[in-house]
Design a protein around this nucleic acid. Structure first.
Lengths: 231, 231
DNA sequence: ACCTGAACACCGTTCAAGT
DNA sequence: ACCTGAACACCGTTCAAGT
């Protein structure tokens, strides 16, 4: 089947060797296709026009490749953050950028929700958040804890959104419609709050939730800084 | 090999039929073994003393089984919440219980971070959170959005912790030691905040982060309720 | 020095055959 | 009516063989 073409030239790459860079870029292309195209080693080989196992000559395993790919996506997040913002708007821009990139590369983001890349762009993100909480007025252990609160919360949130995007259509349809199905049918006596708020629950948007979650983080930092200032 | 015993009796279950209940309980036993034992259909068959594919006579697929299992773990969370608490302590108890149960059944919790069970115990959790935000002074769309903020945040947080627990030891070791390795080696000039706070970053505990994240949610509700009261 | 491809040890799920 | 077991279409990864 691989020789069905009239030309004797192989469809595989001619001459050019595989590089870590090329593998990372092929990974990003696959990840950007979202749920339409699973991010597997075999798919990656296809995208590169090489044998699937060729990547093992450049990365120890798929996990190490993923960390490199993830760090590249963090670069995209950083590039999206304008200069000259105060600490609150810097965190807001980081949150918005993180979400946008996570939804662009859901296969990467969903796995990275509880990981750390330990690579340069992650250092830059950490530095950015630490700078923000420092500017807000926190230092020492307080700054460290609040950095982790922000970093972990953002990772968890965008990973959650990304994982949802990757769900098979059937599961997603079931989850999506629950506010207009199962939750409409609960016993009014046993579940008065659900019954009363059924309509509003169905109407909540992802944007509203995202906004509430990000502002909660900012408010928490602000309050803690104010408490520290008084003491 | 299956007939190596002297007794002719089969080691498989004698007479007793499989039930959804028995399958759910076997699933919980496997999930409780954490990273030591992957939650797979084949492992489930082994645990039940039946053919792995027998479960398809009682659940449409693994996903439907998982939703049922997850709803059972929500029951455990609810049972851990004492009566008579005010709204803040009720949310704190829900958060603590959710984390405890998530760490007990990490394979379930890590998958459920972006899912909804659409089953009775989830209704009870939703009712509980809605009751809390209502008691705090929110209603209508405000109550609905803040419920989603709390519910999604808790799910994301405990799912994140659970996924970390399931990481293969090698990956976890790498992530775990990063604060004392990669982050200690960054360029002091380019990363002044990381350099200054390296020690404190390494010392942050999961408990501190959890506390900060939960209190941030409570503070956000409190502030919003105060703002609504004024208007 | 790098790539290939067969092979291994896994997955979830289907379906014809058994009882 | 339910269970079994072979089979299918997948995974990530290893390793001997090629160039």
């Amino acid at each position: 089947m691989s020789k069905s073409s009239v030309t004797p030239a192989r469809t595989k790459r001619v001459g050019a060797q595989l590089t870590p860079e090329a593998i990372i870029e092929a990974s990003l292309r696959i990840a950007a296709r979202g749920s339409a195209d699973a991010f597997t080693v075999r798919r990656l080989g296809e995208e590169l026009g090489a044998d699937p196992t060729a990547i093992y000559r450049h990365f120890r395993d798929k996990d190490e490749l993923l960390l490199s790919v993830a760090d590249r996506t963090l670069g995209e997040v950083l590039d999206s953050i304008p200069d000259g913002l105060d600490w609150k708007d810097r965190l807001r821009a980081l949150a918005a950028g993180s979400l946008a990139v996570a939804l662009k590369y859901p296969a990467v983001s969903s796995i990275m929700a509880s990981r750390t890349t330990r690579r340069t762009n992650e250092f830059r993100v950490v530095e950015l958040i630490l700078g923000a909480v420092t500017e807000a007025g926190l230092d020492g252990a307080e700054a460290a804890v609040h950095y982790r609160m922000v970093g972990d919360s953002l990772l968890a949130h965008v990973g959650q959104r990304a994982a949802y995007l990757l769900l098979d259509p059937e599961s997603r349809a079931g989850d999506e419609s629950s506010w207009n199905r199962e939750y409409r049918l609960v016993d009014a006596h046993g579940f008065p709050n659900i019954t009363r708020l059924a309509q509003q629950l169905a109407e909540v948007t992802d944007d509203q939730i995202f906004h509430a979650r990000v502002e909660a983080l900012i408010t928490a930092i602000e309050q803690r800084a104010a408490a520290v200032r008084e003491a």
